[in-house]
Simulated assay, not measured.
Amino acid sequence: MKTPNHFKLTALAAIFSCFVLTACNGANSSTASSTADVILTIPVEAVLTRHGEISSSYRTTATLEARGEAEVISKATGIVQHILVEEGDAVSAGQLLAQLDNERQQYSLNKEKAELNRLASELTRTKEMHERKLISSDVFEKLQWQFDAMQASVNLAELALKETEVRAPISGVISRRYAKLGQLVNQYATQSLFHIVSNQQLEAVVHLPEQQLAQARIGQNALLEFAGMLPVNAELVRISPVVDAASGTVRAVLRVANEQQLLKPGMFAQVQLQFDVKADALLLPKRALMTTDNSPTVFVVNAENKVSRKPVSLGYQSDNTVEILSGLALGDKVVIAGQSALKDDALVNVVSVKQFE
């Protein structure tokens, strides 16, 4: 038989058990709540939209070419006696580069001059006699023609002597010397003795796709990048009026100033042709963009550290930056890292706000 005290102990045990269970449930509920808070707070990196300069451009490659270059040949036949320049030497137009033997040309000139002097003396005497009516006009005119013909022969002999001097046709730098001392040069063999390139101005030829032709204009700027060198500015100076049917491209020529002679013909360049420049565009890094239903979107962080997905309209684009035409305002905080795990109204923890150039 159970006593009253036994019933009291049983009731106390039941109350104690309920208290323990309630306390445990409360602790578990608090832990779950903290876990939920951690899951909902997603760490992200963000950036503030800013105003800056951006351009519409086309990227391609090109090889530098000399604006002026010449293969120097001899107009005379002879043996090379003197070479006055070497590869790398700067020369000016008309400068003497090499001398051929000219003994034969000198003798020929002396002979022609002697004959001219004889005719000149005879013409003087004949002219006096003609003025005195002692000889006919026909005799005087024939002698005058002989004198004129001999004068032309002397001029040709002087030219032949002058052509034994090999001179630079343009100003530039000797890029190759083919001539050698003692070499027999034949004027009819078109042997190249020197190669001269003009490095003061270089050209870069690019081939623009047909769809880019509408944006290309004479006078537009271009930026040329070379390995191990600072970028160099260039200018679009010529655009072909014909589209190459085989490639669908248009030949365009860039002029590259090279007063310091740092650039060389044959150098390979990465070319960025700038069609248009906006000085005060609203800019955003490209990595902030996401694609939703084939349209660009971004996640914007509000004052409560919640994000919302916003569609944006894009304008000009560069390597890492894009122009925002609509959808954002100046100073908006936009997620650039961690956005793949986000959805509308997600709570985020902005780890850092990056600055971008």
Rank of each mutant, 00 (worst) to 15 (best):
P4A: 08
L9D: 12
T10L: 15
A11V: 09
A13L: 15
S17L: 14
T22M: 06
A23Y: 03
N28L: 15
A32I: 08
T41L: 09
I54P: 12
I54C: 09
S56R: 12
Y58I: 13
T60A: 04
A66M: 00
G68W: 08
A70D: 03
T77W: 05
Q81A: 12
E86D: 15
G94V: 07
Q99G: 03
L100F: 08
N102D: 15
Y107Q: 07
S108M: 05
E115V: 13
L116E: 04
A120R: 10
E128N: 14
S137Q: 08
E141P: 00
E141Q: 13
A149W: 11
A157K: 00
T164D: 07
P169V: 01
R177W: 06
L181G: 13
S192T: 14
F194D: 00
L202M: 02
A204M: 04
V205C: 03
V205Y: 04
L208N: 05
A214E: 06
Q215T: 04
L223N: 15
E225D: 10
N233H: 13
N233G: 14
E235C: 01
V242R: 07
L254D: 05
L254N: 05
A257R: 07
P265D: 07
M267Q: 13
F268R: 06
D276I: 15
A279Q: 11
D280S: 08
D280W: 02
L282A: 01
L283E: 02
R287H: 09
T292C: 09
N294P: 00
P296Y: 03
T297R: 11
T297G: 09
F299C: 04
F299H: 04
V300A: 00
V301F: 02
N305Q: 11
K306R: 11
V307D: 01
S308P: 00
K310S: 07
S313C: 03
Q317E: 14
Q317N: 08
G331T: 02
I336A: 09
A337M: 11
Q339C: 10
L342T: 00
K343W: 12
A346S: 12
V350I: 08
V350T: 03
V351T: 10
Q355P: 06
F356Q: 06
